[in-house]
Design a protein around this nucleic acid. Structure first.
Lengths: 334, 334
DNA sequence: TCTATTCTTTGGAGCGCTCTAATGCTGTAA
DNA sequence: TTACAGCATTAGAGCGCTCCAAAGAATAGA
């Protein structure tokens, strides 16, 4: 388990340790014969540089710390995937920690990330207090994904939930719908902006908005439908808080004898793998999640390289993915 | 961005660096007044130990390297989640890399993991040649998840695909089914053992097996149904390769006018979040993915601590999750 | 030939920490 | 009084590397 060091390589190649270091960094100021000798010796010994020692000596780091609440959530998994790809392109590695959306655990996770003296830190939808974020930002560049802040030393990458909901409403209006109800996402971080976007878009079109309180689960979607069915008149379209909620709503409506989209059009949010299934074929709003990860990594790298000091505020545009759950309103409505 | 060192804390507390080190490690041989002084100084300066320096000096590591092909795949995401939880419990951090199921990229990923001199490495379903795995294992403990090996210095954690398929078949047989067809998973890593389990279980019950070649996607499931519909007689039950395939098969069957489970029972594999949706409510086979991650971490930790030298070969038992897509065969079928 | 100049190579200090061996300091026994 | 535990504390070497200053080697110009 004891691996060869630079010293070993140097001895075998008959050169100094410093020269080996230069070769490992592809320095142009090494003569060809020495370079070959060093590379051969390294190869023969199976030498690979010791990142920790390198970091320590050079006072630099090639590590990006990532705090994610839960990798099982496809949203985070995809953002991390984007982060990883972009980080690798810039020569960084990811060290990942989970915070479980509990401030105390996130605090711990953040501390242990900082103990690695990473070059930068990405916090995905953290529930941490601003104070902690600020403290972290004074130690290294920090980027926030799916959370905004007014801290000027921190970058943020968010999807534009308002624009997404507006996209959904516009789509339905263009199909001829006027009675459009929103099932909101309750206490979820992204539900406020989605609701706001829905309200603004309805007002823009001169329509009367109606919000039914719900959550981001299929059971909640079904429950919201039950509430909706109490009404005298049903809407012709539903803008739900996310895909799961949409699925729950759809099956509850079908159970109640309604045809989707014949009687009611339904639109989801997130474009999860679920929505794409033939069987489901849900019209939904897609957020560029991988892209968000890439942008987060790029924001960090820029700050690390000192290329920028002003904060970046990315607000990514979602897109509409039209599938089979939306169509023109039926005649009988209005 | 320049953070205080142990030296700074020592100076402020009026003690030596070594004493600070002892306090940071909760050594019992430090007097109470000194301990307090050190802790106060550390607090005031916002000191936190430098992991890299600590690793270097102590020649130990608290990092576990993880190579995963793709985090967007829920299987891996959950295994990683389990790994993370167990690693944290034992005081380790994860450093994650993606290999994309391409040997060359995995090679690179492995190399950069090894550069961190991790305490151990977990490879999730790698396509790496045995040679590379063996080389890694000579540098630090290695555990393989979803891949077997005969290397004796490497631990493996696998789910028992044969047992899972047998569970599916047994369930259907106990309901009274005899005409049971398998849609297999094609070239996927886990499909061989799942198919083998199906074949063995059918034979065990004295039934005639029939395998239709398919893939792990919903489109492939639908395509396999199209093929099935050419037959004169339909089976009364389907054992599919995974949940996506099952969903595709179900919707194709429903499109063709069949009732699920009235006419045909369908059983999935993986118990994805999909299967649990009310709307889908798919009977399926659950693999303990988080558990696999935990066990992988534990296997590593045991080897790291030198508690074990013989290889571990975990074969985890899947379980049947009964939902709404399986029932007794209809009368009309014989 | 000698010096000036450029190109290679090397010694060695130091990154922040750990850990061993040695020190200082009490108190107790001889 | 000295000796000797026993405990708390510290000096200092060293982990594997980087990087600066300086030395050496090679070449060019005079």
């Amino acid at each position: 388990m004891v691996r060869p060091t630079m010293e070993d390589v140097a001895r075998r190649a008959g050169v100094s340790r410093a020269l080996v270091s230069l070769v490992m960094h592809d320095s142009p100021k090494v003569s060809a014969p020495r370079r070959d000798a060093v590379l051969r010796a390294a190869e023969e010994l199976g030498y690979s540089p010791h990142m920790m020692a390198r970091s320590l000596a050079s006072r630099t780091s090639t590590v990006l710390g990532v705090m994610v609440s839960d990798l099982r959530n496809a949203f985070f998994a995809e953002v991390v995937e984007g982060l990883d790809a972009a980080a690798r392109d810039s020569g960084f590695e990811l060290i990942i920690n989970t915070g479980g959306r509990r401030a105390s655990r996130e605090q711990r996770a953040l501390r242990s990330l900082l103990a690695f003296r990473p070059a930068g830190i990405a916090l995905l939808s953290p529930v941490l207090p601003v104070k902690s974020i600020d403290a972290a930002a004074s130690a290294c560049p920090v980027v926030l994904v799916s959370r905004s802040t007014r801290l000027t030393n921190v970058d943020t990458i968010n999807d534009d939930g308002e624009a997404g909901s507006a996209l959904a409403v516009d789509h339905l209006v263009s199909l001829g719908h006027t009675a459009i109800v929103h099932f909101d996402g309750g206490s979820a971080a992204n539900s406020t902006s989605r609701r706001r976007g829905y309200l603004a878009a309805m007002r823009k079109h001169g329509l009367r908005p109606e919000v039914i309180h719900s959550e981001h689960t299929d059971a909640a979607g079904a429950k919201a439908v039950a509430e909706l069915l109490q009404h005298d008149e049903l809407p012709t379209a539903l803008v739900t808080g996310n895909d799961f909620n949409a699925i729950g709503a759809i099956s509850a409506l079908e159970d109640a004898g309604y045809d989707i989209p014949g009687d009611i059009s339904v639109i989801g949010y997130d474009n999860t793998s679920l929505a794409a299934l033939r069987h489901v074929s849900l019209t939904t709003i897609d957020q560029p999640r991988m892209e968000m990860g890439r942008l987060a990594a790029e924001a960090l790298v820029q700050r690390i390289r000192g290329q920028r000091a002003e904060p970046v505020r990315q607000l990514l545009n979602p897109t509409l993915v039209t599938r089979a759950t939306t169509t023109e309103p039926a005649r009988r409505q209005r």
